[in-house]
């Protein structure tokens, strides 16, 4: 039974009509047309689908779209300001923090969300935070380097 749901994504309203069982990730991809949020496991481990929900990083595969009614959702598509990349995106580019790029949107949203909440995380805290997502290509070295570089710029 489809239900109307109002999502606010990257500052824009999306009035969609979805089954209650539809996950936030599927709704973002299928109904809002925002395919930057990727699905790597659909059981909440890999974190490729991480988005910000009222500022908190969450797994979009573990939320139902109807749970997010009227909440503020931010996805990777909302990071850049027009042509201008977000400092986190720029740092990933400069430090080679991505290879295939599939996990990248999740890492970007995780790191941006965490650093907006706590800008002065130390190295251990950064690693602890980044250990919530999986990357299969980079061995994480350059992801950490990128997040550190962006942290300096975001402060």
């Amino acid at each position: 039974m489809k239900t109307p749901v109002k999502l606010r994504v990257n500052g824009q309203a999306h009035e969609i009509f979805v089954e209650p069982r539809k996950t936030l990730a599927d709704a973002l991809r299928d109904d809002c047309g925002l395919t930057g949020t990727h699905l790597g496991c659909e059981h909440g481990v890999c974190g490729a689908c991480t988005v910000l929900l009222d500022g908190d990083p969450v797994r979009a595969c573990l939320m139902f779209a109807i749970q997010c009614q009227d909440m503020e959702i931010r996805t990777v598509e909302g990071l850049a300001d027009g042509e201008e990349l977000h400092p986190m995106q720029r740092a990933f580019w400069e430090k080679h923090g991505l290879q295939c790029g599939f996990c990248t949107p999740g890492f970007l949203m995780l790191a941006v969300g965490a650093l907006e909440r706590k800008p002065d995380m130390d190295e251990e805290e950064l690693k602890e935070m980044l250990s919530s997502n999986l990357c299969r290509c980079t061995g994480y070295q350059n992801i950490l380097a990128a997040v550190r570089a962006a942290q300096a710029e975001m402060q």
């Binding site: 991809r29 395919t35 930057g36 949020t37 699905l39 850049a80 990933f92 991505l98 790029g101």
Partner: peptide, 25 residues
Amino acid sequence: RRLRRVEDPSLLRGEGRFVADVARG
């Protein structure tokens, strides 16, 4: 040279095109 990758900007913006992105609908 450690040249930045030309592949990256679209992937960083969430504008990559993976097969599931093509398969919508």
